[in-house]
Design a protein around this nucleic acid. Structure first.
Lengths: 152, 152
DNA sequence: CGCGATTTAATCGCGCACGATTTAACTACG
DNA sequence: CGTAGTTAAATCGTGCGCGATTAAATCGCG
């Protein structure tokens, strides 16, 4: 009987969920690149901006919780965003261990313009709203199960 | 109360399909790491091995078509696999532009042992076969639509 | 044949990811 | 208080991804 799961016995990477996610991630990255070029943003940088547009003034830790990244990844990204003039980074006077990340005027300014970007994604994918949400929910479940098993 | 925007996908990263894929990809990467450590393989290296187990002796181009990668990414990965003793790389005498990648005895030898790895994934995810296939198919459709739009 | 166009890998530079470690600031507890 | 333990960011090294470029082999067309 043919295996159709994540098992390589029967087949190729094409049948594996991990590869479906892996290759879809690269496709997103490449799809976003030309759209974000005019802002000088990379895809991970864009995700940070989205997180800040939703809730400004978060600490590195809080951003990391939202993006599932840690300071070893975030700090260099945030420094580049700071160098681009989109955010500021300053130690919280209340707790000097923490660094608060805040949007600059320029960072807030591109929000409107950048709203065309996700619209372009939905247009390209042509998925219904319910189908999209379902896919997001299923992927979040996969992610959380994997993450739970990795730690616990 | 959580802020949302009018833009589709524009609330927070948690609602965005691109982020669901992005974070699931990282979760897979971290889930695989301890499982692959004993083979000395990274996750991308493992995907190359899976592709070769399915069809040995492919060219870099053919491997790239399967994995959606190009030589700029594959060549260093293949060199590391070669250094580990899992594959050989040699120019095709029929067409010296091409490099054929072949499993060594050691490369074939770990196939059986490594078959426990995807089993561990299915056990952890607890998804039915049909549900898994459906998810893979949907993600492949997303990937192909994005890739088609990026090129075309 | 000859020579420009095409194809295939490889190379280079940059920006993530991330395990491991370090530094600094805060907390808890005797 | 003081100090051991904890927490938050930053630092470092390695390995991808990938756009851009280069080098070499092959193809195509006169």
């Amino acid at each position: 009987m043919k295996q159709t799961t994540d098992a390589p016995q029967g087949g190729d990477v094409a049948e594996m969920l991990c590869f479906a996610i892996y290759s879809a991630q690269h496709a997103f990255n490449q799809f976003y690149r030309p759209l974000l070029d005019r802002f000088g943003l990379t895809y991970p940088q864009y995700l940070v901006m989205v997180a800040l547009w939703a809730s400004d003034g978060r600490t590195v830790k809080q951003l990391g919780a939202a993006l599932r990244l840690e300071s070893n990844t975030l700090t260099p990204v945030l420094k580049r965003l700071e160098a681009q003039g989109y955010v500021t980074r300053q130690r919280d006077p209340e707790d000097e261990r923490q660094v608060r990340v805040r949007l600059t005027e320029a960072g807030r300014a591109i929000r409107e313009e950048a709203s065309a970007v996700p619209q372009c994604v939905t247009d390209t994918l042509g998925l219904g709203d319910a189908e999209m949400r379902d896919l997001v929910q299923k992927l979040a479940a996969v992610r959380d199960r994997l993450a739970g098993a990795t730690r616990g």
